[in-house]
Amino acid sequence: MAEVSAMSEPTAGALEREAERDDNRTRWLLSLPAMIIIVLAAAGPLLVMVVYSFLTPGDYGNVKWEFSTQAWVNTILQRDIFDDTLMWADAHLSIFWRSLSLSLITTVMAFAFGLPTAWFIATQPPGKREFWLFLVTVPFWSNLLVRTIAIQELIRAEGVINNLLLLLGIIDEPLQMMFTNFAIAFGMTYVYLPLMVLPIYAAVDKLDFRLVEAANDLYASRWRTFWRVILPLIKPGIIAGSILVFIPSLGAYVTPRVLGGGKNLMFGNLIELQFGQGRNWPLGAALSLMLMAAVMVSLIWYVRVTSRERSNV
């Protein structure tokens, strides 16, 4: 009798297991859309890039399905087209260097303008902060290209800045600002400034001003208070802002294209060139992956630094 009941009625353990299985299935089903998006939109295209970077360029663009590591070699080394000697691909390296240094300059400039802005907003009375934050985000409503062309109107030969300086008699003839590295850094700083202001604002907003008062009470100079109390407390915001500015700058395309005049290429433009007029898709794919690797390295460095700090505290 006991045996029969055990056969016909499932035990509590089996029931639990079944419920767990159901639960698992639901969980899988629920995560399916996310998985599909990750595979289709992230892993899939990335895989295509990896495959293409190991193929041979076709005659007028596209690729031939022949395995080749030439593209990867060419990212760093190139064969001279005139005497076939192997040499450093100095053009790629110099463009990478330009991208890196312009992105760093952009980040520093965005910080220099972003910190006072964020500080100003965070120290306003609570009712007014929203208004100022709103002003900071307004440029995001318009297209990146429109904002870049607005900058162009400011710095071109007969633009606002030159006309103003001429009118004031400070200069005799227009300054050449368009199509220079300055133009690119200036444009990117303007475009990415809100990405610096918002995280720093969030950090300053959380800052406990009693600590600042305590430092003042203990006769810390203003500079010392800033350096030893305020800066360490808002550091996470500064780092987050810097990363948010640095990474898109490194891959920027539109701003260097419009303000750099197609002459001072950045890495994004170099990649575009390979898929367009350069007609070397495998090299373009290899360069894109290199850029991704560079971004990954800086992100990993960031995670390491911040986690070490946390464990130190």
Binding site: A157, E158, P174, Q176, M178, F179, G261, G262, K263
Partner: peptide, 21 residues
Amino acid sequence: AKADWASFNSDGAKDVLVSGD
């Protein structure tokens, strides 16, 4: 010659002449 060139631009070829850039 590139050192003497300001820009590479096709769709803006007219505008840079008109604007004086």
